[in-house]
Design a protein around this nucleic acid. Structure first.
Lengths: 245, 245
DNA sequence: AAGTGGTCTAGACCACAAA
DNA sequence: TTGTGGTCTAGACCACTTG
């Protein structure tokens, strides 16, 4: 079955087309984590191309961490990436337990509103989009460890509206539920204002590490979160290489 | 010229061997930025393999940003990567000028010592390694913007010993001079102690953003630096995607 | 034993940009 | 016009792992 080299596609190369289609199936959730992809041979039949071309795509997806490949058994959609690979942290439960402290969290505020004013900047959604606002306090033992203010875009994550977040904190729930495709962090130091000082049991003016994170799922804003840690409670660790072998 | 598939190499695949050799030439500086690599055809002759194999390696190096490829003209070693691609910041001059402020820096301390005690932990060098210690204060206009304490490993960067750092700050000098292969950041908030408060013209106890960075050049420690910014002066921005298309 | 991915070949045509 | 990279093919053999 020979394929015309300059086939029907406009100008996009074949392996790029295959890549974006497979990628789409994964980030959309049609192929959930653990799903077994077609074998290389099946792909060649689907796209009428040679195995090398398919292999190039799958090798690339594997390098990017979207799939895992095992001989004899096939290729599988990888578990949702933790951000840990790039910026190590962010499952607060794990952070606290790594300190050998008991972890708990409490929801200290919850409301639904329509996006307006500052929300539009924070999340980048159109005016009137329904948002879920949740404030959470995380504890390590008896001490406040982190205060979290979160906005979720109910247009992207409608399931959140009827989730109680009693078992799982909003952050952990989202990570498990929503494959993200892009994230942006702003990291700074700040002095606690009166409200934050009360939440974290600090003196007003105490130094805090503040992390603001926006997350997208293929161009749709998912969540905006502001995490505030007492200066001594936390540090970020990031390891980089210019390449990933 | 057919090549034995299971050739002389022990177990390493051919394209990995080519990759690591080319990579070695680049990070060692034997092939400096701008150097024109052999063409794919020349590589096939050197390694006695097919063009696809060479192409795989060069495509990978290009994706990693180590080289740039242009049709008809060839493949070239890329300019030293700024860390900006991953964690946007770190040329302090650029940061300050982005704020539309005049930039200047002053060296406020310089000494050479043999590594001992805490140095061994910070840099990970053997006891007795000669280190250059340089403290620098960076200004935006008339205000202190950042206080920098830096250790350089003279075993890895001997040129630093006779560099005055009058024209170029130690950080900018290193980035331009030394291709790094690995970096590790620790980011936290802290309250200024008396010494730091004096350097940054703050009240003791004021909140600061502290960034500690270690950098390696192929397993050799290059530098340890601690950057302290007044809380309002600076924030880190990091953008991530789970993959790099 | 069989099915999967890992790697490699020896070609081929095309697009592009410099000479 | 020509040399370079970009892409693709239709095979091939191997290693691994599960049944």
């Amino acid at each position: 079955m020979t394929r015309k080299t300059t086939g029907s596609a406009k100008t996009e190369s074949l392996h790029r087309r295959i890549l974006s289609e497979v990628e789409g199936n994964i980030v959309s959730g049609r192929w959930p984590p653990g799903y077994r992809l077609p074998s290389e041979f099946e792909f060649t039949a689907t796209y009428g191309c040679s195995r090398m071309t398919v292999n190039k795509v799958l090798t690339q997806l594997s390098a990017a961490g979207l799939i895992e490949r095992r001989r004899r058994t096939g290729s599988f959609v990888a578990l949702p990436r933790s951000e840990a690979a790039i910026l190590e942290l962010h499952d607060i439960r794990t952070e606290v337990q790594a300190l050998d402290q008991p972890y708990r969290f409490e929801i200290v505020g919850r409301s639904i509103r329509k996006a307006a004013g500052h929300d539009l900047v924070l999340l980048g959604v159109p005016e009137g989009t329904r948002l879920l606002s949740i404030n959470t306090r995380h504890h390590a033992g008896e001490h406040p460890f982190c205060y979290e203010e979160r906005l979720m875009n109910l247009a992207t994550v409608p399931e959140a509206e009827h989730e109680s977040f009693e078992e799982t904190s909003p952050g952990a729930w989202l990570v498990a539920k929503i494959p993200w495709t892009r994230a942006e962090h702003h990291i700074r130091a700040a002095e606690a204002d009166d409200g934050l000082a009360r939440q974290l049991d600090l003196k007003p003016g105490a130094a805090c590490l503040v992390i603001e994170r926006r997350t997208w799922r293929s161009e749709s804003p998912v969540t905006f979160v502001k995490l505030a840690y007492p200066a001594n409670a936390h540090q970020l660790v990031a390891r980089f290489s210019p390449e990933q072998s």
